[in-house]
Design a protein around this nucleic acid. Sequence first.
DNA 1: GCCAACGTTGGC
DNA 2: GCCAACGTTGGC
Length: 168
Amino acid sequence: MGKKYWLIKSEPDVFGFDDLENCENQTEHWDGIRNCQARNFMRDEMQQGDVAIFYHSNAGPEVGAVGLATVASEKAYPDPTQFDPKSNYHDAKSTKENPRWLMVDFKWAKAFKRLVTLKEMKGSPELTEMLVVQRGQRLSIQPVEKAHFKAVCKMGGLAVKDLKEFGI
DNA sequence: GCCAACGTTGGC
DNA sequence: GCCAACGTTGGC
C-alpha cells in the first residue's frame, strides 16, 4: 500500500513545528483532535510512514506550510486527554471501553527552506483544488493529493532529491 | 477583535 | 430527523 499525503494544522503559539523538532525523538502524539472527520482519517487511512505538511494556523502573516512530518505510530490509538477531567479536551461521554477520540504520533521530518504562506498557495494555479485554500475549510487534518503535496514542497524550496525519501 | 463558515447540541 | 441556537475555527 502506497503512502498517503496529509496536511496537519497547528497553532504555533500552542504547538509549532519547532516544538515538534524539540520533542524527544522529534516525535509527539497528536492529541486534542475533536472532529469526527479528522478522527476518521487517522483511524481509517493513516499509516505509519505517511507524510504530512505541517501547517501553522492562526499565525497572522506567518500562516502557512512550514515543513514535513511523518506518521510515527503504527496506527491510531486512544487519546488519553479525553479521559482527563482537567484537560481542555476532556470528553465526559467517552469511555475507555469505547473511546471516541484517537490520535497518532507525528515525527518531525524536514523543514522547508522558506515558509509557504496561505496567500501563496491561494495564488498558485496548481493548488486551486487543494482543500486548505478553500474558503471556510477548517478541517485540522486534511488529505492532500500527491501533485499538490509536491507543488507545496517545491514552493518551500525542497529539492527533488529531498523528496525521494518521502516517495514523492 | 471581527466575523464568516462550519460543526454540534438539543428541543421538538 | 429537522433545524435553531450556540460554540469554535481560523483568516484577516
